[in-house]
Simulated assay, not measured.
Amino acid sequence: MFADGCLHCAARRIQYLQRTLRLGATNTQARCRTALQQAMALGLPEVEIRRMAKAPEWQLAPEPEKETRKRR
């Protein structure tokens, strides 16, 4: 459901823990910290994960840019 090493998935995982699961404040907090630590262990930036996880909209990976080609 959440790919290891993916910045967007790390943020979405934290959002999922906070918004979807009803674990109680203490358990949710502990699971979010664990998720953040696991993502950071894979080399993902803590500040970016936190910023993205706090966004009101669900964190989605950006769509790849499409090449625009001019027709002759």
Rank of each mutant, 00 (worst) to 15 (best):
R13I: 08
R50M: 12
R51I: 14
C9Q: 03
A55N: 13
Y16G: 02
P45F: 11
E67T: 01
K66G: 00
C9K: 06
H8A: 09
G24F: 15
L23T: 04
E48F: 09
T26S: 15
L23F: 11
A30H: 05
M40R: 08
C6N: 10
P56Y: 05
Q37F: 13
L21M: 14
P45D: 04
W58D: 04
L23Y: 08
G24R: 12
T34P: 00
C6H: 05
L60W: 10
P64I: 00
A41K: 05
A10D: 09
T28L: 12
A10L: 13
R31D: 06
K70I: 02
R33M: 14
I14V: 14
I49F: 07
R31S: 07
G43I: 10
E65K: 00
L36C: 08
Q37E: 13
R71G: 03
A55T: 15
R33L: 15
R12Q: 07
A41L: 11
A11P: 09
M40F: 01
I14A: 10
Q59V: 15
N27S: 11
Q29P: 00
R22Y: 12
G5K: 05
A41H: 13
E63S: 04
R13M: 15
T20C: 11
G43K: 01
R50H: 09
M1Q: 07
A61H: 04
E63A: 09
L42Q: 10
G5W: 11
Q15T: 03
L7M: 10
A35Y: 14
L42E: 07
I49R: 00
A61M: 01
R72M: 02
C32R: 11
N27E: 13
F2A: 08
R22H: 15
A35T: 09
K70L: 06
Q37Y: 12
E57I: 10
P62E: 01
C6P: 00
L36H: 05
C32F: 14
M40Q: 07
L17Y: 08
L23K: 02
A41I: 09
M52V: 06
L7C: 03
A25T: 04
R12C: 14
Y16L: 09
A53L: 14
Y16P: 00
T20V: 15
R51D: 07
L23S: 01
L60K: 11
A3H: 04
Q29D: 08
A41T: 06
R13Y: 10
Q38Y: 07
A11G: 08
A35C: 13
E57H: 13
G24E: 14
L36P: 03
E46A: 15
A25C: 02
E46C: 12
E65A: 02
W58P: 01
Q37P: 03
L42T: 06
W58R: 07
R31N: 09
A3K: 14
I14S: 06
A41C: 13
T68Q: 13
L42M: 11
P45V: 13
L36V: 11
T20I: 15
A11K: 09
V47G: 05
